[in-house]
Structures are given as C-alpha cells and as structure tokens.
Design a protein around this nucleic acid. Sequence first.
DNA 1: CGGACTTTTGACCAGGCTCAATAATAGTGG
DNA 2: CCACTATTATTGAGCCTGGTCAAAAGTCCG
Lengths: 244, 244
Amino acid sequence: MTDERGLRLAALPRDHPCGRCEVRLDTFCGALKAKELAEFKALGSTARAEPGQCLFHEGDTAELVFNVTRGTLKLYRLLPDGRRQIASFIQPGDFLGLTVEEVHAYTAEALEPVDYCRFPRERFDRFADEHPEIGRELYAMAAHELAAAREQIVLLGRKTAIERVASFLLARFDRVRARNPDWEIVRLPMTRTDIADHLGLTKETVSRAFTSLRRRGLIALIPDARVELLRREPLEHLAAGERG
Amino acid sequence: MTDERGLRLAALPRDHPCGRCEVRLDTFCGALKAKELAEFKALGSTARAEPGQCLFHEGDTAELVFNVTRGTLKLYRLLPDGRRQIASFIQPGDFLGLTVEEVHAYTAEALEPVDYCRFPRERFDRFADEHPEIGRELYAMAAHELAAAREQIVLLGRKTAIERVASFLLARFDRVRARNPDWEIVRLPMTRTDIADHLGLTKETVSRAFTSLRRRGLIALIPDARVELLRREPLEHLAAGERG
DNA sequence: CGGACTTTTGACCAGGCTCAATAATAGTGG
DNA sequence: CCACTATTATTGAGCCTGGTCAAAAGTCCG
C-alpha cells in the first residue's frame, strides 16, 4: 500500500464488505447515529472503475451521487478545440456528483483503480431532506469546496508558474499531513500533463518548475511518482506569492 | 435609475424601511411563509457603504452575514507583493460573508454606494438551523457559487485574453437579461483594472480586448461606462473558446 | 530486451506584461 | 457653463514568462 492514506487504512478489515466505505463516510459518523448510518449506507452500492474510465461525462444527466473510497479521479472540462481544465482531483472520502443542476458540468475520470459507493440521487436527496444534520454536513462540504475553488482562482489568476507548482505540492503535503503529521512524502498519481491542466500551464513548464524546486533543494523526486518535502518554509513562501 | 435592476425596483415603495430588502430577499419568499419572512427580516438591520469602503477585510472574524440590496462590491484577495485577484463581483440580491470558517478569506469593498442588510452570524445560523427550507436555499446558493467559481477556473486556466473578456461581458449581459430579456446594454461599474484583476490580465490587455471587440462590431462602448451587445453569436463563440 | 509512454531538456516563438505617452472622462470650484 | 485637475482609458514599443516544437533520457510494462 504505497498510497498516501498510509497506515490507517491498511489496519482496517479489508474483507468487510463495507470496510472501506465505513472509513470514508467518517464525515457523517459524527452526525448520524449508528442506526441511521446503516440506513444511509443501505442506500448505496459499491463499484470499481479502472484507470481512464469515467464515472460520468460533461453533459450527462446527474442521476447518481458518488463517494470515493479508494483511488484518485480528475474532474475536468474540455473546450471545443481540446484545451482542458482540471477543476480538481478527487480523493478518498470526497463526494462527487453533488449538483443542483440537471446535468453534470464536468467529466470525472479515474486516474488509478477507484472504488466508490454510488447513491441514486433522488434517494440521496430525500435522505438529506429527512436528516437536517446531513444537510448541514453537505452544506459545510460545499462551502469548503467553494473555498478551495476560490483558492484555485487566486492561483490561476495571479501566481507565476513556480508559485503554482509550489502551491499544488503544499496542498498535497498538507492533505497527507492531516492524517500523518510526520509524513513528508507524497505520491502524485497524476501525470505532468494532468498537473499542467490543473494549474493552467503546459507539461513542459510543470516539469521545469519541478526541476527548479529540486535544484533549489526544496523537494526531491523519488521513484514511483513520489515527491519528498525537504524544506517547507521556502516552499510556503513561494506558494504564498512572496516574490524572491 | 440607470442600473441594471431597472424598472422593477423603481416601482417599489422606496420610503418603506425595508422596501429594498423585501425585493432582494425574494430568494426566500418562495421558501418562507409571510410570518417567518417577517421574523427573518427582523434579525437584520440595514446600512450603507460608500465607494471604497469595505464591509470586511481578509482575516477579519466573520461576525456578520450580508445581503446586498443596492450597488456592487468586489470580493478580492491580495498577495503579499500587491498582486490582486478579484474572486467575484457581488450584486443586489447576493449574500455575502457566508462561510464555515472563523475568518473571512477575502475583502469585500464597495465599488459604488451600496445598501445592504446585515445579520449577526449566530442569529442567522440559528434561524437557518430552525428552518430547513432556508438551509436548502443556502445550499443551493453555495452550489451555484461553486459552479460559477469553477466556470471562472476554466476561464483563468485555459482561455485567451479576448475569450476571457468575451465571457465576462456575456455573463454581465445574461445577468441583465434574466430580468429584462430585451435589454442589450449593461453598465460596468468597475474599472478596467478591476476587470483585469478578475480575469487574470492587466488593464492594458483588457482595454485592447474591448477595442478589438468593438472593431469587430461585436460590442459598442457607450458613455457612462456602458457596453452595448451588437452581435451575440460571435461573442458566444469566442467565450466558449472556439478558436478563430 | 524492446516498445510505448512519460518526463526532461533545449531552442525558439508569441501572447500578454511593462513602461510610457496620449486621450478621454469625471469631478470641482469659480 | 467652462476651465482646471485628477483619474481612468487607450494606444504604442519593447520585453519576458511561459508556450511550442523537437529531441533525448528515463520509466514501466510485458
């Protein structure tokens, strides 16, 4: 298990039919009683997607809501001439497909093998309506996503190439550290092209930025698509946009 | 009354203490009974901000929630060296200051004289908790804002200068047309610098894009900071990112 | 080991930025 | 109403960051 969730997941009973699901819904564990949680989980069914498979495409009617339990996806939109913008990367624990629109505005494609629970949207919505505490959780999640989206807006609107890459890496490191405070290595399951399409750059520029950060001694590139954080402070300064 | 809300507001009793407020809370009119609506409005008090004044600054503790009833604001963040990114422009009817964080991540500054209702956050939250239908409205609003933010991400990440300006103008026109379907003129209360800081460009590039659109016969620039839409189709093609 | 793919690096190019000058516009006070 | 000023918008010239195109090096498979 090389993935960033690391030890905690490894310690869980993998054979339990909803073992993974149980963890990834921990957001709701605080909000729901055991009985209600079981009831909620009964609404969904588990499934798997292989790399390159899409859970839904831009323009599809939004019939399902997803909760990712393993693996990473990219959420992107294509312009008519093929330019691509990746709005965000979706990781274990994230919900996906929540929308008030009729159709999805983005395509969700698996980067690696992905396990997920899927809920019929109608049943999901009804459950949320009947359980205000869930509604509140969903609201908090939307608010967090909005904050993250606006962070990305600042990045795309005003940061230089190397600042964007520094911000991206720090966001990855922080996500790992939330669970493993002393973890200094993160795996990047996405290609340079994916990162570029997320940061509004080209793959070449992303690669040059990685090289520059490595030469400055801020990071190290490790086999198996991993990155090690060597010096956090200067990386944070770069990410914050302090010129120098 | 040159402003885009146009006739509808003009027809309201201006002397009524909450006349304006009544309109701008129309989002909730459908969700709440008259008695509850009155109860809700009693939570807030009206106030005014002059151009340049800020309702709150980046880093302030979030103690109030705002609902704008007249005028336009810009919501922005500054990088340490002065680079600025305007996340969005806030218009009559919009809520402001809704966050699950303790502090505001952005500064909200008035572009023109702004009237607004303000609600103590605690009371606002409690009311929302007690009225699930309000919670649902808030969730829908957050979802819409998230969709708009992601639209902006596509714009900033992958569109050219002229495509960004075309998208920006169309968004303005569409907002007007939602209320006045045959309205083809929009006032832009923000400066070229503001537009530039919203679109990730410089004021010179924005100005050149306006000139280019005018020379192509897609728009006309009218005194009093207004723009007329002459040819919608080609502007939409540009905004959508069809190269050519 | 071989082939496909990804990443890195290099050389050159261009879209948009910077700096600067001019023009238009909006206030302001006489 | 108009001159005067301050601010904003437009236009021009040159530059630079990051894009494009191409080649080499590295990686991951079977």
